[in-house]
Design a binder for these strands. Structure first.
Length: 173
DNA sequence: GTAACGATCCTC
DNA sequence: AGGATCGTTACA
């Protein structure tokens, strides 16, 4: 069953771990559908989170994160990799979940390249979009937490938060 | 206007 | 250990 805006409007610290084990569903224009189990996520939570892009306040780029949960937030990093994020929280609560790993592709840049996702998806509505959505599988795998990747610049307080969620054994098999 | 910097990945 | 590569942001 497709996840609703209501689900994504919960706090990011609840949504990020809940997404583990669910299916990322991708549909091509010719209706070919592929499903990928979500194995790894990271939470970015509000303007006070110095690792979150919204810590700089509202800009053209971060505006989407201030919307109610359920939108797609895509952005380009290092000039070559698109990152796939889901906006969470309520209106004016800038939060997002970075989809960091799915079955078959470990790494946020690799999975978007594999699914040919790019900036044209920015702002898409996960409840109604016909290219990308998430389905509940009823599976809640055991997971571990750890500090987020690549955010050392945010300082010890924020870089050290255990806001990375990883399915146990995701990389061992 | 200009300059610096990444929520990364691949190849030495 | 270092390079690719460019939109976004900060600053003058």
């Amino acid at each position: 069953m497709r996840l609703s805006r209501k689900f994504f409007s919960q706090d990011v610290l609840k949504v990020a771990p809940a997404l583990l084990g669910m299916d990322l569903v991708h549909q091509f224009p010719d209706k070919t559908v592929n499903r990928y189990t979500i194995l790894e996520t990271e939470a970015y939570r509000g303007e006070t989170d110095l690792a979150c892009h919204a810590s700089k306040g509202k800009t053209k780029r971060t505006l989407i994160m201030y919307e109610p949960g359920g939108c797609v937030y895509m952005y380009l990093i290092y000039g070559m990799y698109w990152m796939l994020n889901f906006v969470t929280g309520k209106l004016n609560e800038p939060q997002a979940v970075l989809i960091r790993g799915i079955k078959g592709f470990n790494g946020p840049g690799k999975l978007t390249r594999a699914l040919t996702l790019n900036g044209s998806l920015n702002g898409a509505d996960l409840e109604h979009d016909d290219q990308l959505w998430v389905e509940n599988t009823g599976i809640s795998p055991a997971y571990t937490t750890g500090p987020r990747i690549g955010v050392a610049y945010a300082g010890e307080e924020w870089a050290g938060k255990p806001w990375r969620f990883l399915v146990k054994g995701a990389y061992s098999k």
